[in-house]
Design a protein around this nucleic acid. Structure first.
Lengths: 153, 153
DNA sequence: TGTAGATCTGCCCTTGACGTCAAGGTCGGC
DNA sequence: GCCGACCTTGACGTCAAGGGCAGATCTACA
């Protein structure tokens, strides 16, 4: 019989939501879309969230707000990350040909690099944007200084 | 009588939309929300867009996709930018006290700096994000190399 | 054991940002 | 002066991402 590990306490949906900064509804919705799965349920059917679960929720929000991905795209990213993690976990497992494992990892890397390219593109555009705003601010500062130097009528 | 300037040709909504990379519906919608106003209408009531109009549309999409602002927030940003431009245009106009003008400019600068702070925050988070992804890629690469070095069973 | 909250599963509603369709008006070339 | 392409307003539809409610259930604690 496998021992029941006490581990860190799991949170109910209310605390989990508060902790992750989202609504309870959002948690259920993400689960419905297959983005997260509470790591346990009470015998009565209530969701119990682990720290890992919460980290995943935070990641979802990051991908939403930082990259502007929709939940379907986020699902793909998370699925890939999960697969990579799984591969890492069992990467020496027998039963899977080395070639096949290498293949899977290579594919995973490709997906991560795609994500990285997305991020880089966004970074570049964002830097340009900031420079524009900076230029505007600079112009206005000069204008303001001109006022200070030469008071009006 | 004021001379009719030929100027660069204004575009109909179809070409304008194509040129700006948005739908005609979006252009009408942005106008409805007060974000843009075609710089002319034909006598018959058809919208005619200038290059400036198109630049503004592009800016709207940037603020949407880069910063994730909604159209209301974008309206505020644009309104501020408009006011700054107007101030620059008439910044020596008589009839407005120098103090008042300085006040307006200072306020405008504050708003631009707020926007800049938003951008900076996003940039910081994005850089962190990219570093995470890079680390993941690096780990996977090493794993892959290990496979190459020590072929499976 | 009983009760107050917290949660459960439906299920329909809202909001933002458009898409789409209808019924008609306009423009430019011939 | 007419025709086909383009455009108008108005109204309704859609899609993602949840919000919110009802009615039942569960859990913790006195």
């Amino acid at each position: 019989m496998i021992a029941q590990e006490a581990g860190p306490p799991l949170l109910g949906i209310g605390e989990a939501a508060a902790h992750a900064g989202v609504s309870e509804r959002a948690l259920r919705y993400y689960q419905q879309l297959g983005l997260i799965t509470p790591s346990a349920r009470t015998p009565g059917g209530m969701r119990r969230y682990s720290e890992d679960n919460l980290a995943r929720v935070v990641r979802i929000r990051e991908l939403q707000s930082l990259l502007g991905l929709n939940l379907e795209e986020i699902g793909a990213v998370l699925a890939n990350e999960d697969r990579l993690a799984e591969l890492r976990r069992v990467y020496r497992a027998e039963g899977t040909a080395a070639e096949r494992r290498a293949e899977l990892i290579a594919e995973g890397i490709a997906l991560q690099e795609e994500l990285r390219a997305t991020i880089d593109a966004k970074l570049t555009r964002l830097h340009g944007f900031r420079d524009d705003v900076d230029a505007t601010i600079e112009r206005m500062r000069k204008l303001l200084a001109e006022f200070a130097g030469a008071p009006g009528p």
